Amino acid sequence: MHLLIIDGGHAEAEFRQKFGPMHEYSFLTLDPPETAATREVLEQQGSEVLATADVLFSFSEDLWPFVLDNKGQKPYFVEASGNAVTLLNKRYSSIFGFCGLPTLLNRPLLEVSSPNPENAPQLAETCAALGTDYRVVQDRVGLVTPRVICMIINEACYTLQEGTASIQDIDKSMKLGTRYPRGPFEWANLIGVSRVYEVLKALWEDTHEERYKVCPLLKSMYLRGEQFQLNE
Results as ranks from 00 to 15, higher is better:
Asp69Tyr: 00
Asn70Gly: 09
Gly72Phe: 15
Gln73Arg: 15
Gln73Trp: 11
Lys74Asn: 06
Tyr76Trp: 09
Phe77Gly: 02
Val78Phe: 11
Glu79Arg: 07
Glu79Val: 03
Ala80Arg: 05
Ala80Pro: 02
Ser81Thr: 10
Asn83Tyr: 14
Arg91Ala: 08
Arg91His: 07
Gly97Tyr: 02
Cys99Arg: 11
Leu104Pro: 08
Arg107Gln: 10
Ser114Val: 07
Asn116Phe: 00
Asn119Met: 06
Asn119Ile: 00
Asn119Lys: 09
Asn119Gly: 10
Glu125Asp: 13
Thr126Val: 04
Thr126Asn: 03
Thr126Ile: 04
Ala128His: 08
Ala129Ser: 07
Gln138His: 15
Arg140Asp: 09
Val141Ile: 15
Met151Thr: 12
Glu155Val: 04
Ala156Trp: 04
Cys157Leu: 03
Tyr158Asn: 14
Thr159Met: 12
Gly163Lys: 10
Thr164Glu: 06
Ala165Met: 05
Ile167Pro: 02
Ile167Met: 06
Gln168Ser: 08
Gln168Tyr: 09
Ser173Ile: 07
Lys175His: 02
Tyr180Ala: 12
Gly183Val: 01
Gly183Lys: 01
Trp187His: 06
Asn189Met: 03
Leu203Asp: 05
Trp204His: 11
Glu205Thr: 08
Asp206Tyr: 11
Asp206His: 12
Asp206Pro: 04
Thr207Ile: 00
Thr207Asp: 02
